[in-house]
């Protein structure tokens, strides 16, 4: 039973507090569990605060996404062994990411939103942001991947030869 008018106050890791509708928080497994654990009357308005380990700026983005996705089906469809793809991000979500995933931002916000979606257990947002990350890597050469991820090659010559042998089929 969800009471759409019921509101939940969230306190952020940097001391801010935001009050949002239960219609949004029902998509967060973490917040729903916190409310259930409190065992308060579902009609209580507002609830006592739920502390989230997310900073204010990131939480604002999460709330913006949740507001757009408030009517998404619940529970979030369980992932099966079916094929997975990253090219099916909805247009609104793509535009939402483009607003803050800029060159100047250097993917720090993407990192923050991915970890926030994980901590708050918002499966739709976690999937979408991980697909966004996969799309950054998709189609790049190994060298370009090293550049994007700032990782050094630490294989020995022998190991590199072994990997080349393993991947010979996908090289020209």
């Amino acid at each position: 039973r969800i009471y759409p008018l019921m509101r939940v106050t969230l306190t952020t890791s940097d001391g801010a507090s935001v009050t949002v509708s239960r219609q949004l928080t029902k998509h967060s497994g973490f917040i729903e569990k916190a409310i259930t654990d409190m065992a308060v009357d579902d009609n209580a308005v507002p609830l006592s605060a739920v502390a989230v380990d997310v900073d204010d700026a990131t939480l604002k983005l999460v709330i913006e996404w949740l507001t757009e996705h408030r009517d998404d089906a619940l529970p979030y469809p369980e992932k099966t062994d079916e094929e997975r793809r990253a090219d099916d991000i909805p247009a609104w979500d793509q535009a939402f990411v483009q607003k803050w995933d800029t060159k100047e931002d250097q993917q720090q916000t993407l990192y923050a939103v991915i970890t926030a979606a994980d901590k708050l257990d918002i499966k739709g947002l976690l999937d979408m942001t991980c697909k966004t990350l996969a799309n950054k890597i998709n189609g790049k050469t190994v060298e370009e991947m090293r550049e994007i991820l700032q990782l050094e090659c630490d294989f020995t010559e022998e190991e590199l030869a072994e990997i080349r042998k393993e991947n010979a089929w996908c090289e020209n």
């Binding site: 998709n138 700032q150 996908c170």
Partner: peptide
């Protein structure tokens, strides 16, 4: 400025999720 993503700083289950969205050739790369 460097534009990069700290993929190794992510928890294992998120890394797995990212890998699962990649085509085979990109995964192996």
């Amino acid at each position: 400025y460097r534009d990069y993503f700290p993929i190794l700083a992510l928890p294992k289950h998120i890394q797995d999720l990212v890998f699962s969205f990649l085509p085979i050739m990109d995964r192996l790369a």
